[in-house]
């Protein structure tokens, strides 16, 4: 089998816009706050997931983006759940929630919040996506200064070419103050809805255009 893999669908949320496979699917005024936009998108798409409001902002962003991605490309129906990997990266880890948690452990007002604490790791978002979709394949989270198309394409291609997975949900999810963006895409061994070779160059072009 060829070592060539393909980006078969993608979804991004940035600047109060949801883009699915390059077209703007939903947007609101850029005046709306990031978290209000996410709640509005959640209602707009009727995603109906009881845990949504309990998640931190990073997980909310990841969940909406992955839900929309998997609505457009039903990989969870086309592959065994063990064959789907999730590999995501960002630049700020879980800093938004870490800061929030810090406010609950002030020595003069010491009431650590268990609910906030569980989200003080960025890889929790992988678990949220996996639980939501019953995915049981490999999952990994990286923290980089910026989106690294060379590393991501190389790592995901290695996973697929070494039969560690047959399909991968991958990309970038950042949420801290005004640094809010997600870009998730699926990679498969054969072309799908979209037909973009999964190379560093193509990935850079795709990410830059979001």
């Amino acid at each position: 089998m060829s070592d060539q893999n393909y980006i078969t669908s993608f979804c991004s949320i940035k600047s109060s816009k949801v883009c699915i496979n390059s077209h703007i699917d939903y947007s609101e005024s850029s005046q709306v706050s990031s978290i209000d936009f996410l709640k509005s998108a959640y209602k707009h798409y009727q995603l109906a997931y009881p845990k949504f409001y309990k998640m931190d902002s990073l997980c909310k962003l990841a969940l909406i983006t992955s839900d929309l991605l998997l609505k457009t490309n039903k990989i969870t129906e086309n592959y065994n759940k063990e064959e789907i990997a999730i590999v995501i990266a960002n630049s700020v880890s879980s800093l938004e929630t870490d800061v929030e948690y810090q406010t609950t452990i002030d020595k003069n007002n010491y009431f650590p919040s268990p609910t906030v604490f569980v989200y003080t790791l960025p890889n929790i978002l992988l678990g949220e996506i996996a639980i939501r979709n019953g995915i049981k394949g490999e999952n990994t989270f990286f923290v980089f200064d910026k989106f690294d198309a060379g590393f991501m394409s190389s790592y995901i291609n290695s996973l697929l070419n070494n039969s560690r997975a047959k399909c991968c949900i991958t990309g970038w999810v950042d949420f801290y103050e005004n640094k809010v963006e997600s870009f998730l895409y699926t990679v498969e061994k054969q072309p799908g809805i979209m037909n973009i070779e999964h190379t560093s160059e193509q990935l850079t072009k795709l990410y830059t255009n979001q």
């Binding site: 009431f111 650590p112 919040s113 268990p114 609910t115 569980v118």
Partner: peptide
């Protein structure tokens, strides 16, 4: 986790 949060709520 909610149960733990309720314990904190009672104390706080």
């Amino acid at each position: 986790i909610d149960a733990l949060e309720l314990i904190v709520l009672l104390e706080k």
